[in-house]
């Protein structure tokens, strides 16, 4: 277990010793800040007042979810693909570290960076809490952040898996982006297009990556199925990543 921490710590630090962590933070908070100030402006405008619009905590959580999904490929692409390109994977694989420890360590390093972003983003609900009375609704805030944490965990794990398949970073990045876009936007659409034909819809709805977040967690509802869904995606992806490394040993 200590190996997981050693590897995660290195990854986490490396994000900050390169421009990656700052660049991504810049984009993320630019977008969040835009949505936040826009919503607050509308609420304080004459029309907003008239309609009684009160911004909720979802004004930043909703774009945050999309941004996390889009930024993750930039974080995870490097994790294993670069080790393979540099050849340093040979040192990790001959160090007394189990394959799953390596994979989980890599995942944890990137996940911790997203947790850092999430922690910083709490500033928006805190400001909002001062602006509206009687303050923000804490239920959706808690479940929303639970959702964002689960979503980050699962997306990073998917990214680790894709990264484990490539040694070319550009290919790994494009593939991760493709997978993430497919999970976030396309599966849900397939579910809707498949329409009301029984079992298939049920399956598509269960697999809908964004649906589990939007439909329940963002609205303050914690359904065990959603939690299990994201945790399973995380576990399965990490398992497949460890397998992918194991398989390469036999190459």
């Amino acid at each position: 277990m200590i190996n997981v921490w050693t590897i995660a710590k290195r990854e986490y630090r490396l994000y900050f010793s390169s421009p990656v962590a700052y660049m991504l933070a810049f984009f993320l908070f630019l977008v969040l800040g835009f949505f936040f100030s826009y919503s607050v402006q509308i609420a304080s405008s004459a029309m907003g007042m008239q309609q009684g619009y009160v911004p909720g905590v979802d004004i930043t959580m909703q774009p945050m979810a999309v941004m996390l999904v889009l930024l993750t490929p930039a974080l995870t692409t490097r994790l294993l693909a670069e080790e393979r390109r540099l050849g340093t994977i040979e040192l990790l694989m001959t160090a007394p570290v189990r394959d799953w420890e390596l994979v989980v360590g890599k995942w944890l390093g990137a996940f911790m960076l997203l947790l850092t972003y999430l922690a910083v983003s709490l500033i928006y609900p805190m400001i909002l809490n001062q602006l509206i009375s009687p303050g923000v609704d804490q239920g959706p805030l808690l479940t929303g952040y639970l959702g964002l944490i689960l979503l980050s965990a699962a997306t990073v794990a998917v990214g680790v898996f894709v990264s484990s398949l490539f040694s070319n970073q550009i290919a790994a990045f494009a593939a991760t982006m493709g997978v993430v876009i497919f999970l976030w936007w396309i599966i849900g659409v397939i579910g809707q297009v498949a329409g009301q034909t029984g079992g298939a819809t049920e399956l598509a709805r269960y697999l809908d990556y964004s649906g589990h977040f939007y439909e329940n967690l963002l609205r303050g509802v914690v359904d065990l199925r959603d939690v299990v869904y994201y945790l399973s995606v995380t576990a399965l992806s990490l398992f497949l990543s460890a397998m992918s490394i194991e398989v390469r040993r036999w190459g």
Binding site: E90, T94, A95
Partner: peptide, 18 residues
């Protein structure tokens, strides 16, 4: 075995950004 072996691969892989 890995605990007891020190290994330097041919290409000497290192992390350039550390």
């Amino acid at each position: 075995v890995r605990r007891r072996v020190g290994y330097m691969p041919e290409t000497v892989p290192l992390y350039p950004d550390m």
